[in-house]
Amino acid sequence: MNAAQEDHISDSAPPAFRTAVEALRAARPRPEIEVDPTRPPRRLAPYAYALEAAVVDGGQDLADGRLVLLHDPEGHDAWQGTFRLVTLVRAELEPEMAADPLLPDVCWSWLTGALEARGLGYGEPSGTVTRASSHYFGGMSERPAASQIEIRASWTPREGLGGVPDAAAHLTAWCELLCQLAGLPPTAAGGDGAVVTLPQRRGPQPR
């Protein structure tokens, strides 16, 4: 499936969903972020749209992720709404950062803080923050140990006029999370000089 096919939305999709998707398409994230449509999941909701993004600096991918917009016109009890945003983001870590016991709490606060900094209402947030370390042996023993942080999260965006959430603003907040994971300074809308970011590091390693 090519990008044009992945970006196609059926003419039968509800107007609220089509409006939210158009807002995602029209959003312009900060220049370090490359965003493209990708194949959405088919079984999580009647309607879905997905984007993948990478923070690129100096030719290196410093962080990457996926954001999925789900819509069920009938509503969903677990969501407490008709829309849901689901994400997976990840980045490589320096060893000293990976050992910080407060890192999971800090990373989760980056997501909620990015939403709240833009005045975005949301409900039913849930997710996990996972640290993983890889050590190499045998023929790969020359490779240095590597650590990665991964955030899986979902939340229900508050719906506005016509039952449509401010999808573009949620995308902007999500992109700010990506940049903080990548070690880039936040934008003015994303926080002030007191906001902690991870130090810049090498990009995700080949698997």
Results as ranks from 00 to 15, higher is better:
Pro144Ser: 14
Ala146His: 14
Ala194Gln: 14
Trp155Cys: 03
Gly183Trp: 07
Thr172Asn: 12
Ser147Leu: 08
Cys175His: 02
His170Gln: 01
Gly190Ser: 03
Gly203Ser: 04
Pro206Tyr: 00
Gly163His: 05
Gly162Ile: 13
Ala145Glu: 09
Val196Leu: 15
Arg152Trp: 03
Ala146Pro: 00
Arg158Cys: 03
Ala167Gln: 09
Pro144Lys: 15
Val164Gly: 02
Leu177Gln: 08
Pro185Met: 00
Gly203Arg: 10
Gly163Val: 12
Arg143Leu: 15
Thr156Val: 04
Thr197Lys: 08
Glu176Gln: 08
Leu171Met: 14
Pro199Tyr: 00
Arg202His: 13
Ala169Thr: 10
Pro199Leu: 10
Pro206Lys: 09
Ala168Met: 05
Pro157Asp: 02
Arg207His: 13
Ser154Tyr: 04
Val195Gly: 01
Gly183Arg: 13
Pro185Gln: 01
Ala168Asn: 06
Glu159Lys: 10
Thr187Asp: 14
Ala168Phe: 10
Leu177Lys: 06
Ala167His: 07
Cys179Leu: 08
Arg158Thr: 11
Gln180Leu: 11
Arg202Lys: 15
Glu159Asp: 04
Pro199Asn: 06
Trp174Pro: 04
Ala145Trp: 01
Leu161Tyr: 00
Gln205Asp: 13
Pro144Val: 13
Ala169Tyr: 01
Leu171Arg: 06
Glu176Cys: 06
Leu198Cys: 04
Arg207Gln: 15
Gly190Val: 05
Ala145Gly: 11
Glu159Thr: 14
Thr172Met: 12
Gly183Val: 09
Leu184Asn: 05
Gln148Asp: 09
Val196Gln: 15
Glu176Ile: 06
Ala153Gly: 07
Glu159Gln: 14
Cys179Val: 05
Ala167Ile: 13
Arg202Phe: 09
Ser154Gly: 11
Leu181Ser: 01
Pro144Phe: 11
Gly162Tyr: 05
Ala167Trp: 06
Gln180Ser: 07
Glu142Leu: 12
Cys175Glu: 03
Pro204Ala: 14
Val195Ala: 10
Val195Ile: 11
Gly203Ala: 07
Glu159Cys: 10
Ser147Asn: 13
Trp174Val: 07
Glu142Ala: 15
Thr197Tyr: 07
Leu161Lys: 06
Asp192Cys: 04
Pro199Ser: 08
Ile149Gly: 00
Ala167Met: 10
Leu198Asp: 00
Gly193Gln: 12
Arg158Gln: 14
Glu176Leu: 11
Ser154Val: 02
Ala188Leu: 14
Glu176Asn: 04
Arg158Val: 09
Pro204Arg: 15
Ala145Ile: 06
Arg207Asp: 14
Gly203Asp: 01
Cys179Thr: 12
Val196Pro: 13
Arg202Trp: 07
Gln200Leu: 14
Ala168His: 06
Pro185Val: 02
Thr197Arg: 14
Gly191Ser: 11
His170Asp: 01
Gly160Trp: 02
